[in-house]
Design a protein around this nucleic acid. Structure first.
Lengths: 303, 303
DNA sequence: AATTGTATTGCAAATGTTTTCATAAAATTA
DNA sequence: TAATTTTATGAAAACATTTGCAATACAATT
């Protein structure tokens, strides 16, 4: 190796200077340091990794980053994992669980020291892959006691039920729903289930044309809400699957000149950082993204 | 190697099955395939990397992810780079350029095939490191002709000047500014410079107590705006350094019962996806995050 | 001066893969 | 059938590093 040559020592000694400096004489260390600096040498982790030494990376595979939903989570996960000396290998699958499988495979090719995925629902191959490779893993954002793999997150069914019950308790009888597409998204599915459960157990029902699926974006939800508000009959409450869509609905209500919460109530479910500052205020269930990220990082780094 | 043993062939043949399958007999390939499946074998990229074969990773170092500013950029960059077969190694430095240097070093230890950074301003060591290691690099988000390294982004000075001139042209004379801290953030600095230039060249001046720096968050800006609006004299326009802060200012205005844009004008600079759907509408300069990400990915993948 | 102990370093093997070169086997041609 | 070409495979070196073991050097003790 070049540095060893330049410092006139063996490769072993260079290696030791990095990994067990106390075993090498101060003067030798200085020689090596100089050579390192002179040549601009940077250790090659790949070469370490094939020795079975950990790669120092954690694979993080998320559906998407740009909806601000996961951004906060990724940020806190990244910060926390960094403190353990790991770096994140990041990839997005766009709610396609087959792609997720392929991405996890790719992560394993890179010999990540662990994988973190969003949600509890994944392709069977993904589960068996993780199991066979015996790679530390963690599922984020959603929580269930009987999960196959370790998970940290909230119980989204409960969150949905909570918000549904809250709206019903406020006396609303005409309720509309705006949710994202549910396939491949167990978080949304469970929230939806929770909301429906709460509504049904109050003996209510959501009419077909008030039960909408809209794209996971402010504008998508705004359009959906507008289509509801255009009708001659109005709901008195719109329950949205998440804060981004709630924000869209809020904007639509403003556009129609409706006062919140006098004329209409809009609720979200809290995966959105800015929600607490919205005017008019949004009723929402907070989900502690930062805590989830931090806790997850700790769990997987210790594995 | 285990697979070679199990299939009773040499390691060379296994390698060829992956890289030059046409060179190996179909029957042998089948044997190897079976062994691979049976053992759940996954190629070790680290071992390839030490051969000088590319690692298939690009290092992306950003100030932060969770402000939704960069989320869209990261998303599009990630998608685009994925199409070239690369995976992202992601890290955040929290606007600390020394930390950024350390992170870039770490990326180089992992032998990334390229690095992408945010902004044009970086520690000298960072520049010399990139230069010495001759690693393909790209600077995102900001653009300048005389940049030391390749960059794709917008001219933030121009953006600032544009919005400043627009506000002045509308006849505003009492203008307040809310910007994020400028240290280590050349995007914000340049916008600020542009806005100030526009204001000064109209012969105007921003009073000290209307020229605020606030944290890069909705709530931070909301507070700052509130402190301005509490005074007995009001500005007729608030120019914010970015859309997140503009959103905060908007919320503050709503809280004070001010109508937009009749009573007060609020402008942002567009790094925020949902801005176009805000009610009341936000005046802003759009920055094409998706395009920047895509273009950057293409540039660096080709390098 | 001989012995023992300790501190420092190098050697060689190992890691998982790719690649070049050589060789063996099979197929083609004369 | 022999000679030649083609196809398929293996052996060995290379990549950058770590590590166990051996060797050397030096100091301390007897």
């Amino acid at each position: 190796m070049a540095v060893a040559k330049a410092a006139r020592v063996s490769a072993s000694t260079v290696s030791r200077t990095y990994n067990h400096p106390e075993l090498v004489k101060a003067s030798t260390r200085r020689k090596i340091d100089n050579a390192v600096r002179r040549l601009g040498y940077i250790r090659n982790r790949a070469a370490q990794t094939i020795h079975g030494i950990r790669s120092g990376t954690i694979g993080l595979v998320v559906p998407t980053i740009d909806h601000a939903i996961f951004a906060e989570l990724i940020q806190s996960f990244s910060e926390a994992i960094d403190r353990f000396g790991f770096t994140i290998l990041l990839a997005t699958h766009g709610y396609d669980l087959q792609r997720e499988y392929a991405l996890v495979r790719k992560m394993l090719e890179h010999r990540v020291d662990g994988v973190a995925l969003i949600g509890l629902e994944h392709a069977d191959e993904t589960f068996s892959l993780i199991e066979r490779q015996a790679i530390p893993s963690i599922l984020l954002w959603n929580h269930a006691d009987q999960s196959l793999l370790p998970c940290v997150g909230t119980n989204n069914f409960q969150a949905g039920k909570l918000i549904g019950a809250h709206v019903v308790d406020q006396g609303h009888r005409d309720i509309a729903l705006i949710f994202p597409p549910l396939e491949g998204n167990d978080r949304a599915s469970q929230r939806y289930g929770g909301v429906q459960t709460a509504i049904e157990s109050a003996g209510l029902e959501v009419p077909e044309n008030w039960n909408l699926k809209a794209p996971y974006s402010v504008s998508g939800a705004k359009e959906a809400a507008a289509s509801i508000l255009q009708g001659k009959r109005f709901p008195t409450a719109i329950i949205c699957g998440n804060d981004v869509q709630a924000w869209g609905a809020l904007n639509a209500a403003s556009r129609f000149g409706l006062a919140i919460p006098e004329d209409i109530s809009v609720t979200g479910i809290g995966d959105f950082k800015g929600s607490k500052d919205l005017e008019p205020a949004l009723t929402t269930v907070r989900i502690p993204a930062r805590q989830i990220g931090k806790q997850a990082a700790t769990t997987i780094a210790r594995a």
